[in-house]
């Protein structure tokens, strides 16, 4: 088994506006991207499970021409509101690095 972090060229998270969070998983060669896509290990369900959300809260995309996987979720706390610890949403991707492909 290989970790997603060892296959992706970039895994990142960021706000998409103050109310949503978006995660990009990018690859630098088409074979690796295809391998990950076809593994079935990364999906709306998988993302929902990792973050403890229901699947219908996850927007999920394979973006073939960008060799990228994308997932968007509502922010649990609005950006900058009391209780928000990550104003830019930049450090919410880390658990995805551990996915076994």
């Amino acid at each position: 088994m290989t970790k997603l972090a060892d296959l992706a060229s970039l895994i990142r998270s960021k706000n998409a506006g103050p109310f949503s969070l978006t995660i990009d998983i990018m690859f630098d060669n088409p074979d690796t991207y295809r391998k990950v896509k076809e593994s079935g290990k990364i999906s709306a369900r998988a993302v929902a499970d990792i973050y403890g959300l229901s699947e219908n809260n996850v927007q999920f995309f394979f973006v073939d021409n960008a060799l990228a996987v994308k997932a968007s979720i509502p922010r649990p706390v609005t950006q900058g509101d009391l209780g928000d610890a990550d104003s830019h949403g930049g450090q919410q991707y880390a658990p995805l690095m551990e996915i076994d492909i």
Binding site: K14, T22, D24, Q59, V63, A66, L67, K70
Partner: peptide, 17 residues
């Protein structure tokens, strides 16, 4: 590169398309 430009539409958008 074609990939870097295609990937840019992902940035800070909930929907890449």
């Amino acid at each position: 590169t074609p990939q870097s430009i295609a990937a840019h539409s992902l940035y800070e958008n909930t929907d890449p398309y």
